[in-house]
């Protein structure tokens, strides 16, 4: 049985296949409206979410399937002390596939060791978020027409930004990607990405603190939120939360075909005035998330038509 825990669980060919299928769904959604009839997706969200949970649920509904689950640990038996182990074994009796988000890193991997049905990691703490990565890859492919030969700037919280870790890891297998990592020193990428991915694969990257210094070089700017929920110390969060704010002034020196991505939710890091700029892709990105999750659910359930 296949699970999706780490973005590297999918080969480049499998990712290409998922993106192709997502594009096919976008072009002909009616062909897929009953593919998952009679199947159930359980969304086990031990941590709050809007986009990821709702896009998983919308994806399953548009495939003709059903959805069950919970949207916070407070409304599950986790409050009674039930383990992740036990929860997935029970839910596996009721559902055909599980999407799990958990604040603790490694929880979906642990779940996959016991689950009788496929587990999809829908975000584990500050670790990985592989379905956001598929969303980001689909968005880059649709906006840029390619997944290689790009200079990508990641900006904000690169320490706890699980979407950043997952996307850097996934893109490390494509040709000629250059990373510019923009963050305060306290929020630089963790060693398991810097050492294990960038340095081991000799991928060019630079770490800077100023967005203005590098924005003109970027083909893609991937903005992230400084996440209050990842800090043990509120004072650190307050000090760092508004380090980067992308506004129309800063965009003046950016390329005319820059693509601005953000996994959302946004707080202050992108001015709402940027939303009207055609370079802002983040709402299209959110929509892409539903289609790529449709492709993933179908694939993991072995239900691809034809």
């Amino acid at each position: 049985m296949r699970h999706l825990i780490d973005p590297m669980d999918l080969s480049v060919e499998e990712i290409d296949g998922l993106l192709k299928l997502a594009n096919e769904i976008i072009a002909h959604p009616e062909k897929y409206s009953e593919v998952c009839h009679g199947k159930k997706l359980a969304t086990l969200f031990f941590e709050p979410s809007t986009r990821t949970r709702l896009s998983f649920e919308a994806a399953m509904m548009e495939l003709g399937g059903n959805v069950l689950g919970f949207s916070s640990a407070d409304s599950s038996s986790a409050t009674k002390g039930e383990s992740v182990h036990d929860t997935v074994q029970v839910v596996g009796c009721y559902a055909d596939i599980i999407a799990m988000r958990h604040p603790k890193e490694g929880a979906p991997l642990l779940a996959s060791l016991k689950s009788p049905v496929p587990i999809i990691n829908a975000g584990d703490g500050g670790h990985y978020h592989p379905t956001q990565t598929l969303t980001d890859l689909l968005t880059i492919q649709r906006e840029k027409g390619k997944l290689g030969n790009l200079t990508i700037g990641f900006c904000g919280d690169l320490m706890f930004g699980r979407t950043v870790h997952s996307l850097i890891k996934a893109l490390s297998r494509y040709d000629n990607i250059r990373y510019i990592l923009i963050s305060p020193p306290e929020l630089r990428i963790p060693d398991y990405i810097r050492v294990e991915i960038l340095e081991k694969k000799n991928i060019p990257y630079m770490e800077v603190e100023s967005m203005e210094q590098v924005i003109s070089e970027l083909d893609i700017l991937y903005m992230t939120r400084v996440q209050r929920e990842r800090f043990f110390n509120e004072a650190d969060y307050v000090r760092l939360k508004d380090t980067y704010i992308l506004d129309t002034d800063k965009l003046k020196s950016a390329k005319s075909d820059l693509s601005i991505l953000h996994p959302l939710p946004r707080v202050n890091e992108i001015s709402t005035k940027v939303d009207d700029d055609p370079r802002a892709c983040y709402f299209r990105q959110a929509l892409n998330g539903k289609y790529v999750r449709m492709a993933l659910i179908m694939t993991m359930l072995g239900l691809i038509p034809g």
């Binding site: 383990s83 992740v84 182990h85 958990h102 604040p103 603790k104 890193e105 490694g106 929880a107 991997l109 642990l110 584990d124 703490g125 500050g126 670790h127 294990e196 990842r230 043990f232």
Partner: peptide
């Protein structure tokens, strides 16, 4: 030792490290 790791809260599981 990572306070954000699932092993800090889940009881009765194997603590596994791989040689990197």
């Amino acid at each position: 030792k990572n306070p954000r790791c699932i092993t800090t809260t889940e009881q009765g599981i194997d603590h596994i490290f791989r040689l990197a």
